Computed example of a mutant assay.
Amino acid sequence: MSNERLPPDHETHWIEAEEEDKFDFRDQGLEDYVTLVLFWILLVVVFLQFFSRYVMGDSIAWTEEMARYFLISVGFLGSAMAVRKNSHIAVEFFYRYMPGNVGLAMSTTVDLSRILFLSIGVWITYKLADRTTAMMVSVDIPKSVIYYIVLAGFVLMLVRSIQVAIRHWREGTSELIFTEDDR
């Protein structure tokens, strides 16, 4: 099918979709690569658990616990990527139908609330990790290691959240606020 047969809006959409598919290493943060590595380790551990349980008939004891901890790590470190891209879920109804100044005030309130929440998360997680002395059940590793990974996730989310807030304040807008032309 040639581009001449396509409606103009379909052709534009096709061009935009093609541009979105391009991958650039510079668009990714360090946490993205760490999360990817942890995800693949999680995949191998879960496959090992499945293989040992259903093919060999005897499950490896440490795989279930380690899969749980790797999933926690992937979740918290991967959240930093979502904060950096400002892609956490949001209710866009108010941003879309309120005047620009109200939307900007709401966006600023959301940015400040997120920074406050993540700061509290950093503090609580640090205190919890510092007080944890228990060992993992199936592996001779302290459980505090997991809490420190969660702490790293909270710190990364906080740093990325501050970066997003600064970007919003410099531009005087947010990705959620639409211009008059977009309505």
Results as ranks from 00 to 15, higher is better:
104 L>V: 07
71 L>F: 15
156 L>T: 03
2 S>N: 07
75 G>H: 10
59 S>V: 07
122 V>D: 02
135 M>A: 05
141 I>F: 07
57 G>C: 02
36 L>R: 08
28 Q>E: 15
20 E>T: 14
9 D>K: 13
91 V>D: 10
39 F>L: 12
181 D>L: 06
13 H>R: 15
181 D>K: 14
180 E>W: 05
171 E>M: 04
100 G>C: 10
77 L>H: 04
177 I>N: 09
55 V>G: 02
71 L>M: 14
19 E>F: 14
110 V>E: 04
109 T>H: 08
81 M>V: 15
178 F>S: 08
155 V>H: 01
96 R>A: 07
109 T>P: 08
64 E>I: 13
119 S>L: 12
156 L>R: 04
13 H>N: 15
146 I>F: 12
152 A>H: 05
141 I>P: 07
165 A>R: 00
92 E>D: 13
154 F>D: 00
32 D>T: 08
45 V>S: 00
115 I>T: 13
62 W>R: 01
92 E>V: 06
12 T>S: 15
42 L>Q: 02
22 K>N: 11
53 R>G: 04
181 D>C: 05
115 I>C: 13
152 A>E: 06
121 G>D: 09
84 R>M: 08
174 S>R: 01
100 G>I: 12
177 I>A: 09
39 F>Y: 11
7 P>C: 08
172 G>Q: 01
165 A>W: 02
34 V>L: 05
129 A>Y: 00
74 V>L: 09
83 V>D: 02
59 S>F: 02
177 I>W: 08
95 Y>I: 00
24 D>R: 12
166 I>W: 01
154 F>C: 04
144 S>W: 05
81 M>T: 15
112 L>P: 05
68 R>H: 14
145 V>C: 09
62 W>D: 02
174 S>N: 01
111 D>H: 03
14 W>F: 13
53 R>Q: 07
71 L>E: 10
22 K>T: 14
80 A>Q: 06
28 Q>V: 15
24 D>Y: 13
114 R>N: 14
178 F>W: 11
11 E>N: 11
161 S>K: 00
116 L>F: 14
154 F>H: 02
37 V>E: 04
23 F>M: 10
77 L>Y: 06
114 R>W: 14
114 R>M: 15
61 A>F: 11
141 I>L: 09
85 K>D: 09
168 H>T: 00
23 F>L: 13
37 V>D: 04
32 D>A: 03
155 V>N: 00
133 T>E: 09
89 I>H: 09
72 I>N: 10
67 A>G: 08
63 T>A: 01
139 V>C: 04
89 I>C: 08
76 F>P: 05
8 P>L: 06
53 R>A: 05
18 E>C: 09
65 E>H: 01
22 K>C: 07
58 D>V: 09
182 D>S: 09
81 M>Y: 15
64 E>R: 14
60 I>Y: 02
132 T>A: 08
31 E>F: 11
117 F>Q: 07
168 H>S: 02
36 L>K: 10
15 I>W: 12
155 V>W: 01
24 D>N: 14
154 F>S: 02
182 D>G: 03
100 G>K: 13
93 F>A: 05
4 E>F: 05
25 F>K: 10
